[in-house]
Simulated assay, not measured.
Amino acid sequence: MPSNLATLPALHTQYYAPSHASPATLNEIGLLRASIWQDHQLSERQHACQQVWLEEADRHAHLWGVTSGSGLIATARLCISDNLDHLPEQSLYQGLSLSPPFATMGRLVVTPAWRGKGIATALIRERLSLCDRLGVKSLLLDCPEHRVPVMQRFGFNALKLPQAGVLFPDTRFVVMGRFN
Results as ranks from 00 to 15, higher is better:
42 L>P: 00
101 P>A: 07
75 T>N: 15
87 L>I: 09
174 V>P: 10
123 L>E: 02
93 Y>M: 08
88 P>N: 03
9 P>I: 04
90 Q>P: 04
169 P>W: 13
95 G>C: 10
27 N>L: 09
109 V>M: 08
78 L>Y: 11
122 A>C: 07
93 Y>L: 09
136 V>Q: 00
131 C>D: 04
4 N>W: 03
86 H>P: 07
24 A>N: 05
76 A>P: 11
159 L>R: 01
174 V>S: 05
91 S>T: 08
145 E>N: 02
21 A>E: 01
51 Q>H: 08
168 F>Y: 15
158 A>H: 02
102 F>C: 01
4 N>Q: 09
12 H>T: 12
169 P>N: 09
168 F>N: 12
148 V>S: 05
110 V>E: 07
85 D>H: 08
79 C>H: 06
155 G>Q: 02
81 S>K: 07
2 P>D: 07
172 R>M: 02
179 F>W: 14
54 L>S: 05
169 P>H: 13
10 A>N: 14
127 R>L: 11
106 G>K: 06
107 R>M: 08
91 S>K: 05
65 G>M: 14
113 A>G: 06
102 F>W: 10
12 H>P: 04
176 M>D: 02
65 G>R: 11
27 N>I: 03
59 R>N: 04
76 A>L: 06
30 G>Y: 05
140 L>M: 08
158 A>W: 10
146 H>G: 02
16 Y>E: 10
111 T>F: 04
56 E>V: 07
13 T>D: 06
3 S>K: 06
145 E>Y: 05
44 E>I: 10
64 W>M: 03
17 A>Y: 01
96 L>I: 06
64 W>D: 00
111 T>S: 15
24 A>E: 09
100 P>Q: 02
76 A>R: 04
29 I>F: 09
102 F>P: 00
122 A>W: 09
2 P>M: 03
40 H>L: 12
127 R>K: 12
58 D>W: 13
56 E>Y: 06
92 L>N: 00
155 G>T: 14
56 E>R: 10
111 T>Q: 14
84 L>R: 00
42 L>T: 04
170 D>V: 14
110 V>Y: 07
70 S>N: 12
9 P>D: 04
152 Q>D: 05
127 R>E: 09
77 R>L: 05
65 G>A: 12
131 C>S: 12
175 V>N: 10
123 L>A: 04
38 Q>N: 10
177 G>S: 07
148 V>P: 03
169 P>K: 07
50 Q>L: 10
9 P>K: 02
122 A>V: 06
116 G>I: 05
117 K>M: 15
69 G>I: 11
59 R>A: 12
10 A>E: 13
116 G>R: 02
105 M>F: 14
116 G>Q: 05
125 R>W: 07
32 L>D: 01
90 Q>L: 03
21 A>Q: 03
13 T>G: 01
8 L>I: 15
167 L>K: 01
45 R>L: 13
114 W>M: 11
143 C>F: 11
163 Q>R: 01
8 L>N: 06
8 L>Y: 14
51 Q>K: 10
57 A>R: 07
115 R>H: 04
125 R>E: 15
129 S>R: 14
2 P>W: 02
50 Q>S: 07
12 H>W: 05
124 I>W: 08
129 S>L: 14
133 R>L: 09
